[in-house]
Structure formats: structure tokens, C-alpha cells
Design a protein around this nucleic acid. Structure first.
Lengths: 204, 204
DNA sequence: ATTATGCCAATTGTTAACAATTAACATTGA
DNA sequence: TCAATGTTAATTGTTAACAATTGGCATAAT
């Protein structure tokens, strides 16, 4: 009997810690001044410093943290305007490309998953908790990218994490809901043109 | 008295191992079939498994290796044609952007460094050793990107490493020399237009 | 014969102790 | 007073031992 887990939530310790920390940092919960201490994080997650180190190194490579040898990590600053535009352009390129690829792969289970993420996002927006909003926003886009290519997911994450370093500046929760609802609607009805249009509109 | 090291070769253990392994893998020295063993690498570099693990994780994030929980890493395969074009397009975007930024920062010391790298590349091409060629080719482009922005370097590396997964297929060492000589010449004479043209010509 | 079960060696994941480095503070000496 | 120099606590880097997981192989049951 074949047992395929319906969700990919079977993460390793490192992935779990990495995703948790990323979501917290991107929505501005972490100050840029307060240094990140491995020992404190290890105690918090109930593990040793090893896996925490792995996560911090990974987040540094993603651009969420900045690594300095023998000095630890600190929260990165948002990219300058010039670089932001470049990254934004590349993010659009990747996501429109992935949409094209994944829209012909998606099945009914994917529809359900997307609806579920959208619902979580809606709840988060209504609650106003930026932590959860940033998390779910990223999760929705990430789902589509990953569905197209695991390979591109890593590249996309490095670009998008850097862009979202000032996610806390996003103001209108209602717009987030409608924009993402438009994307999901178009995707679930397999309307590529509409989906790409909604996507471009969402990636400011 | 201020002592600034002329080169940035003061790397950490992890960086040293990472750069060494990347160069070897990109030029096809490592088979896709033979599994990568942490213990063997640790013994080779004279360190414990910890730093080696860090390097393998980092190279996985870069796309050079593929990581599987509890199963270790294996050499990645080159991207499919469709994805290769997307990555190539993004690489061009980043490098032309970085050229624009760095060309107004470069000084005489940079000229010397670039000439030095170009000479190493020339020697490598004449010797025909792909290991060294791949290393120096990457080093030249990387120098310009890093000079423009440490931030973009990581993004660029993730894209370019994936593209160079089939560097071993590159055939003409002479073309590599002339193409990169053209880039360095244009850059050292601060001719942006010519440099960008030479760059585009080099990034196939 | 074929599938299932139970070892066993090899490998990766995790931990805790130890080494090296840093940065702040105190001390010294002009 | 101020710069230079030890001193010390905190933090990161590294290591080696231990735990958990995997995959192959032999064995047994149907």
C-alpha cells in the first residue's frame, strides 16, 4: 500500500527553523540592531546549535541575514532602489515563466491546496498579523514556483526574500486579498493570460 | 598603520572548501553517479565533517549539488533548455547591471587584479585544464559582480552555477581568451558600452 | 519463486565539549 | 588626559562521540 503524504509539511529540522525565522524576519519582527545569538535560538527551538547554525547560514545565503565570520549574523537591510528594480524584474520573469510551466501540471488537489492557502491568507489579512500575512503571501507564490520547478524555487527564494525585506511597509491588507484571489481564480480556471496579468499586478 | 590585504583571499574554511569543490564539479570532474561522502571530503581537507557539511549545504543551495535528507548529496544535472534560457537571460541582466555600477568604482588596483585574473585564465586555457579554466572564468565575472554589490553576488552565483553545470561542454579555449580579453580591455579603459557588448557576446 | 521480515554495515543527523576569536573593560605608563 | 596593553566574559568555530536513518543482504514464510 502506497502512502504519499498529502502535504509536503514533512520538513527537516533545519527547514522548519529556517521557514519560521524567515517569516518572522521578513515582517519586521526582528530589529536590525539586536544581534542574533545561536545559543538563544537553539534553546528556543529545543535543539543544539548545529541545526540553528545551518539555518542561519542558509538565511544568509538567501539574503535575509548577513553573515560575518566570527561575528555571527544580523538582519539584512532592504536593497537600494536601483537593485530593487532589478530584483523585481527578475522575480516577475521567474514567476511568469513558472506559471506557464505549472498551469498545465496542476490538478484538482492543487486547486484545493491553493484555495486553502488563499483562505489562510485572507484570515491573516483580516487579523492584521503581519507575521502570518508575510508567511502566507510567500507560501502562495512559492507553491506555484515549486510546482513548476524545484530548481527555480531556490533561485526565486533568494530574489524574493531580498525584495520582501521591507514587507512590513505594505499597507493595505484588503488589496492583498483581492490581488491573490485574482491569481488563484485565474489559475484554478487554467486561464494563463489572466493569471499572468494578475501576477504582474501583484508584483508591484 | 593601516594594513589592508591586497587580495580577498582571506577566506574561511567553509569558503575555501566550497570554492574548491565548486570549481571541480562545474568542470565535470565529479561523476553524477558516484555519491559524495562527507567523511572522505573531511579527511581530504584535513578537517572534521562539520565544515564539510556546511559547504555541501551551501553548494546545494547554489544548485551545484542536490540535497536529500538522510541520503546526502549528489551532483546536479544541467537545467533543461527552457530553464537554461531563463537563467541565461537573468545572468545577462545582472552582469550588465553590475558592470554599469562597478565601472565607475574601479581604480588602478582593480585594473591590476583583472589583468592578473585574465592572465591566469589565459594560462589555464593554454594548458587545457578545465578545472582551472572554469575556476578563472568564474573568478573574472565574479570579480566584477562582487565589485558592484556583495548582495547581488549571491543571487548571481546561484544562477551562474546552475548554468555552468555543463561547462565541460565548452570547446574552444582560444575563444574564451579573446572574449574575456575584450571584456577586460573595455573595462580597464572605462568604456561601458564596449564592455557590455563584450559581456553579452561572452554570455552565449 | 516471490514476497516479507529481521539483521547489519555504512552514512547522515545531532549533540556537547573544547578551541579560537572577538569586544568591552580595566590597567598601565607616558 | 590619553593611548597602548593586558584581562576577561561572551560568542562563534571545530571536533569527536553518539543517535537515527538508510539500503543491502540473508533468511524465512507463503
Amino acid at each position: 500500500m502506497l502512502m504519499t503524504p498529502s502535504q509536503n509539511t514533512l520538513q527537516s529540522t533545519r527547514e522548519r527553523i529556517t521557514d519560521t525565522l524567515r517569516a518572522e524576519i521578513l515582517c519586521g519582527e526582528w530589529s536590525n540592531d539586536i544581534p542574533v545569538r545561536e545559543h538563544a535560538l537553539a534553546k528556543r527551538f529545543g535543539v543544539s546549535r548545529g541545526p540553528v547554525r545551518d539555518s542561519l547560514l542558509q538565511l544568509s545565503q538567501e539574503g535575509v541575514l548577513v553573515y560575518q565570520t566570527n561575528k555571527g549574523v544580523r538582519v539584512n537591510t532592504p536593497p537600494a532602489e536601483e537593485q530593487r528594480q532589478l530584483l523585481q524584474s527578475m522575480r516577475r520573469q521567474i514567476e511568469t515563466f513558472c506559471l506557464k510551466i505549472c498551469i498545465r501540471k496542476l490538478n484538482d488537489a492543487d486547486n484545493d491546496n491553493l484555495q486553502e492557502i488563499l483562505q489562510s491568507l485572507t484570515l491573516a489579512c483580516n487579523s492584521g498579523k503581519l507575521t502570518v500575512i508575510a508567511n502566507k503571501d510567500l507560501a502562495l507564490h512559492r507553491y506555484l514556483v515549486r510546482r513548476a520547478s524545484d530548481e527555480l524555487e531556490a533561485v526565486w527564494l533568494g530574489i524574493t526574500s531580498r525584495l520582501l525585506m521591507d514587507y512590513s511597509r505594505i499597507e493595505k491588507p484588503e488589496e492583498i486579498i483581492t490581488e491573490h484571489a485574482a491569481i488563484v481564480d485565474a489559475v484554478t480556471s487554467r486561464n494563463l493570460k489572466a493569471a499572468q496579468k494578475a501576477l504582474i499586478a501583484n508584483i508591484i
